[in-house]
Design a protein around this nucleic acid. Structure first.
Length: 585
DNA sequence: GCCGTTTTCGGCCCGACTGTTTTCAGTCG
């Protein structure tokens, strides 16, 4: 998916790590157009990804030796990172920009346009940006270039339309909805079996570039045909014997792979990625004298496994790796040593501890929320409406807070089979104090403290501010601890390590907010927290009953963070939870 | 440009689809 220039810019401003990651990817793209060694290009791409995922800022690394411990960072790239930290630029990149303008790189994101074609356009048609690119496509003499015909040009013109209208990456909620409905449709195609979401969506990444779906059938071609004829398809990008590719709403691409039933395990493994994980898997296979592709695991020409994903991992000496862990973040080593975590599952969740009602800015009543939670077989729900400072969200003053408490207790008595906790999502004000006095807070069953204003504070200020809330004896958890809105707002500058340390010291939980816009804590932060022994609460921040279903996104994020059932407070039974809450009194 | 339980040099995952070809190159995932 193309990335809008505006978003590229905001990405650029984020941090040293994303600055460097961005430069490395642009170096890779430039080298690609220059026809450089593909492995050198791959090295820059890999380094870019690894740096963007680092848990701490490269500025805080002790020196070159420590930098070189980052996978994919060797002597050369460590020097370049240091150069960037010292001078704010990398000369190698500055020189490359003289050769290949940045406005040209963006065009690589157009469907059907690769480095070779772009190189021809740049060298022979003086194309430097999208305007020149579109002009060149109408130039008759382009057809004289070897390998370029009318169809190719038409395909690229379509690609430009998609490039111009599509957003960068699709949020998980929308992707999940589209994917689920397409899975249902594919299941209705005659002869299909085992239709399943693959790709980054199966790994529950917070955003996805495209949607991958795998199915199996004895006769594959008619399935692809039926798929590309779906009404939802606005554009058909490819339609072959085993693979179809369509564009649906908002420029979202959906790929379907159809394999024989005996190849299903290999295919779902292959198409679930991540790319880096699969490279590791393949390398292991080849060291054992095997070959692995999307059809199976082979010893010479003999297929020894293909049907079962589990068995493929098994034959490679690996425990089955849950898709959420397949990011080359240590899961291969853990699978070799049988040390993979037993990940939390959605069925482990016993309640939701961060929800809103019509008392503040929710759209459903306390009773509706409780009944919806009961329907999910939850044992409890906390209704945590906003506190007074959140005026836009109709936050409750003390008087209304106690009125609500009265009503809530009435409803709690009325409804059997679910415990309703009286809670609050209390604002952490700019000075670090909370919106209610301790005398008020101690009357509540459950308190989640969150920042809702003053996001632009310096690191030490906002960190201290949130830690102040952690220290308050009546606070149970910190809500959406970094405050990011995916694709909309950067996280606040909170020092996550210090926050985790404080949460550990004071025995407070950190939230994974399951709202698909937030997913906060994110996977890597959650992993850090549980490594330090900090408890997690996975909540939906529901503002209407339908939002309770966001829990799956929070659980997915938790799983990506290697979280186990025992790490999560709201897997506790009601009895155990009450005991935990009593510990605060 | 990185990396090492076959290697400090010589590897680095592998196949589908498409268009322009007549055996393949480019692009994609």
């Amino acid at each position: 998916m193309p990335m809008k220039p505006k978003q590229l810019l905001s990405f650029l401003k984020m941090s040293t790590n994303s600055d460097i990651a961005n430069i490395f990817i642009q170096i890779a793209d430039s080298l690609n157009i220059l026809g450089e060694n593909v492995f050198k290009i791959r090295a820059y791409q890999k380094a870019s990804k690894n740096i963007s995922e680092l848990p701490k800022d490269v500025k805080n690394y002790s020196g070159k030796d420590e930098l070189q411990k980052i996978p994919g960072i060797g002597n050369d790239l460590a020097d370049k990172i240091i150069e960037f930290i010292d001078t704010g630029e990398i000369k190698y990149f500055e020189d490359l920009k003289e050769k290949i303008p940045l406005s040209l790189l963006e065009l690589l994101r157009i469907q059907g346009v690769g480095p070779k074609f772009l190189s021809v356009l740049f060298n022979e048609f003086d194309v430097k940006d999208i305007t020149g690119f579109e002009k060149a496509l109408d130039d008759e003499s382009l057809l004289e270039v070897k390998g370029i015909g009318k169809k190719k040009i038409d395909e690229i013109k379509k690609g430009i339309d998609i490039f111009k209208t599509s957003i960068d990456r699709t949020g998980i909620n929308k992707a999940y909805e589209i994917a689920s409905s397409i899975v249902k449709e594919v299941e209705n195609i005659k002869g299909t079996k085992n239709t399943q979401i693959a790709g980054s969506l199966r790994r529950w990444r917070e955003t996805v570039g495209d949607i991958d779906i795998i199915t199996s059938a004895e006769d594959t071609k008619p399935v692809v045909k039926a798929f590309t004829n779906f009404e939802i398809a606005k554009e058909v990008l490819a339609s072959g014997d085993t693979k179809g590719s369509i564009i649906v709403e908002d420029g979202i691409q959906v790929d379907l792979r159809v394999v024989k039933p005996g190849e299903y395990g290999a295919a779902i493994q292959y198409f679930s990625g991540s790319k880096l994980h699969n490279v590791r898997v393949r390398t292991i296979a080849s060291k054992l004298g095997y070959k692995i592709n999307e059809y199976g695991l082979y010893e010479g020409d003999k297929k020894i496994e293909g049907k079962s994903e589990e068995k493929i991992y098994g034959k490679l000496g690996l425990d089955f790796v849950p898709p959420e862990l397949r990011e080359d973040r240590g899961e291969i080593e853990a699978a070799q040593e049988s040390k993979l975590p037993k990940l939390i599952q959605q069925k482990d969740i016993k309640g939701d501890l961060h929800t809103h009602s019509t008392w503040s800015d929710g759209k459903s009543t306390i009773e509706e929320m409780a009944l919806a939670a009961k329907k999910l077989s939850y044992e409890y729900i906390a209704i945590t409406d906003h506190s007074i400072s959140s005026r836009i969200a109709n936050g409750l003053n003390e008087k209304r807070l106690f009125e609500k408490k009265k009503e809530l207790e009435k409803i709690d008595k009325k409804i059997d089979g679910i415990k309703i906790f009286m809670g609050s999502e209390v604002d952490i004000k700019s000075d670090g104090t909370l919106d209610y006095s301790n005398d008020v807070l101690k009357e509540l069953d459950f308190v989640v403290a969150s920042v809702h204003s003053g996001f632009k504070m310096e690191t030490h200020e906002i960190t201290e501010r949130i830690i102040n809330a952690v220290k308050n004896p009546y606070v149970h958890a910190i809500g959406h601890p970094t405050g990011r809105l995916i694709g909309e707002r950067e996280p606040y500058n909170v020092d996550i390590d210090k926050l985790i340390e404080a949460a550990k010291k004071y025995g407070k939980a950190l939230e994974i907010n399951s709202s698909p816009k937030r997913l906060d804590l994110k996977d890597l932060h959650a992993r850090k927290a549980i490594q330090k022994g900090v408890k997690i609460i996975i909540s939906t921040d529901s503002h209407r009953t339908e939002h309770l279903s966001f829990m799956k996104f929070g659980v997915g994020t938790a799983r990506r963070g290697w979280t186990q059932k025992s790490d999560v407070i709201n897997t506790y039974s009601l009895k155990k939870l009450i005991k935990w809450l009593d510990g605060f009194k």
